[in-house]
Design a protein around this nucleic acid. Structure first.
Lengths: 149, 149
DNA sequence: CCGATACTGGACTCGAGCGGTCCTATATTA
DNA sequence: TAATATAGGACCGCTCGAGTCCAGTATCGG
């Protein structure tokens, strides 16, 4: 099924809340969003949300602010956050096939004589480029996308 | 990581052997390839190979011939076998996100008010189209591919 | 200075799904 | 009729992802 992990799925949903000017009543505009608030907004389990936000922060997609009235911010404009970077942050390198050169722990014993190794690697880059070409902003605002159906 | 399942991975490798004119000594040109022979060629566990070939046959990608000197054939030219059909045959509908309209068992409770539902579905079609645009022949013969890196 | 808030980092459990095996039935051919 | 090969399942162990939880640290308000 080539499914995205739930973490990545949730991550995209959570990041989308940073684009809306103001959703939660009582929170200001430029205020950082706390993990708890986001969990309520998205109706997702709080520990899970927390874990995801941590990962996104470590990947440089979000910035964090500790202490009371702390929370998270987008580290850069949504137009500059690629879908690929989100997925990579939450589930590691995008490697559709086992023998991707990006994987360090690959243990394919057929590496030398596999008839489809390089072709499979090309498949890798096809998918990766597809995800690289879509920004968070484009994903959330359907009006700004090129590559219309 | 958006990884392909091993079945799909193996399946692509196995199908690639149907393109080569003649690999195994002793087998003729148009002879069907048996599961056992393919397992030896690809150095993969025989029961696994058998299972995969069965799935590919049921999906109409291969045709089978029972009895002695039986085996499998490509059901149509490799140029007309899309990567998407192979993946679909071996791991079900290509649905990157949970809320794909292709999934019957989706149980997303946020369906009505999810802010990124339709955008995520667009992501689905991006990946699906990427896999649809690559044929088995293109994957194995690097010379015939457009979209060069 | 103290306590409340919120992120940080990691360990931990549990269950589903995948990889892999095996067995019985059926078709084909020599 | 015996050998070969696919058809269609059931079956199992184990990994990995989903989700939880806790101890630690930074920040702010009073």
């Amino acid at each position: 099924m080539l499914r995205l992990s739930k973490q990545a799925d949730y991550g995209i949903v959570l990041l989308s809340y940073f684009l809306e000017p103001d959703s939660a009543p009582g929170t200001g505009n430029g205020m950082p969003r706390s993990a708890r608030d986001l969990a309520q907004l998205a109706e997702l389990p709080a520990p899970m949300v927390s874990k995801i936000l941590k990962h996104l922060t470590r990947a440089g997609i979000l910035t964090s602010q500790r202490g009371s009235h702390g929370g998270y911010h987008l580290a850069r404009p949504a137009t500059e956050i690629s879908l690929a970077s989100i997925v990579t942050a939450l589930e590691g390198e995008i490697a559709v096939t086992e023998c991707s050169p990006l994987l360090t722990d690959r243990t394919c014993s057929h590496e030398s004589h596999c008839p489809v190794r390089t072709p499979l690697q090309r498949l890798d880059s096809i998918v990766r480029r597809a995800l690289d070409g879509v920004s968070l902003a484009e994903l959330v605002e359907p009006t700004t996308h090129r590559n219309a159906s």
